Simulated scan of single mutants.
Amino acid sequence: MSVPDWLHAVQNYMRNLQYNHTGTQFFEIKKTRPLSGLMETAREMIRESLPIKCLESVILGIYLTNGLTSVERFPISFKTQFSGHHFHHVVLGVYCNGRYGTLGMSRRADLMDRALTFRTLSELVFDFEDSYRHYQHTMKKIKIGLYVPHNPHVFQPIEWNYLVINACKQGREDMRKELEKHGRDMRMKILKSSSAQSPIKERTRGKSLSPRRRPGTSPQRHQHIHRRDKSPAALDRKPSELSTLSDGYQIRI
């Protein structure tokens, strides 16, 4: 299965769980919790198969894409204002082969997933901002996190708010520059980490051969031949009983 097909299957799975309109939080998600603990919550979501909200969909999306090592995942959070009230939303950003997209859940169909078609991170974020405008929501803040590790057992929390953009005080051009810089920095970190990893040499098991030991020669025999006999008895031996080797060592005949 290709990466776009896999992401599409993950999104369809979350759609089948449906959005949680009950007002009751079925799963507790603490952003400060280690990734390994959040992955356990994702497994619980699969077992229970209950409706989920946006934050739960991010955790579930991370769990279901851990095997796609060519896909980088990072959280994207939005804070908007409508009729004097503030609203928060989060989706899972995905990056693969120079294209950006998202996975997620929302009450609105155009505030959930995006296919891997956006060339830059700013294009992806501005597309969400345009969707919010259709519902008369004003964008207040945008928060971009860092790439989430693919190892589900790491004991570290997800970085949710690495880049915070105040959309009320910045124009689109300034926002574009910050988003593009953040996207480049994340890609460079991945390149540096992959280049810094060197293959681990396997340790050779078994006995190592000494430079002076010949294969097939027992250690006892080798030690007897090359050890100079310094005992007093060796000085009393007759010359006929001693034989000098080429390297100066003597053995008894």
Rank of each mutant, 00 (worst) to 15 (best):
H226R: 09
S208C: 10
T204F: 13
K30V: 07
R108C: 10
A42V: 01
G67L: 02
D5Q: 12
S194E: 10
L146W: 02
A234Y: 10
T32E: 14
Y19K: 08
H89F: 09
I165A: 03
L245K: 13
E178Q: 11
G183Q: 03
V10C: 10
R214K: 13
P51L: 08
P219E: 11
K189V: 00
P211D: 04
V94C: 08
H85C: 04
R212W: 11
S246I: 12
L55D: 15
L38C: 03
D5H: 13
I59D: 03
K238D: 12
V154Q: 02
F87V: 08
S2H: 06
E72N: 12
P157H: 05
T41E: 12
K30W: 08
Q220G: 04
R237P: 01
F27T: 03
L7I: 04
I158E: 00
I158A: 00
E178V: 06
S2Q: 11
A196M: 15
R99G: 01
T32G: 15
K189D: 01
I200D: 03
G183H: 05
Q136Y: 09
Y100Q: 00
R176P: 09
G145C: 00
N161R: 09
Y13E: 01
P51R: 09
L111H: 14
S122W: 04
K141N: 14
V10D: 05
T102D: 02
G104S: 07
V148P: 06
Q25L: 12
F26T: 11
K140P: 06
V58G: 03
K238L: 12
R15P: 04
L121K: 03
R73S: 13
T69E: 11
R47Q: 13
T32Q: 13
Q220Y: 10
H89R: 06
E40I: 01
T204G: 12
K230Q: 14
E28N: 15
Q18F: 03
L92G: 00
A109N: 11
K177L: 11
L60N: 09
G206T: 09
L55W: 09
Q156N: 08
Y100E: 05
L191W: 05
P152V: 05
S195I: 11
T117D: 10
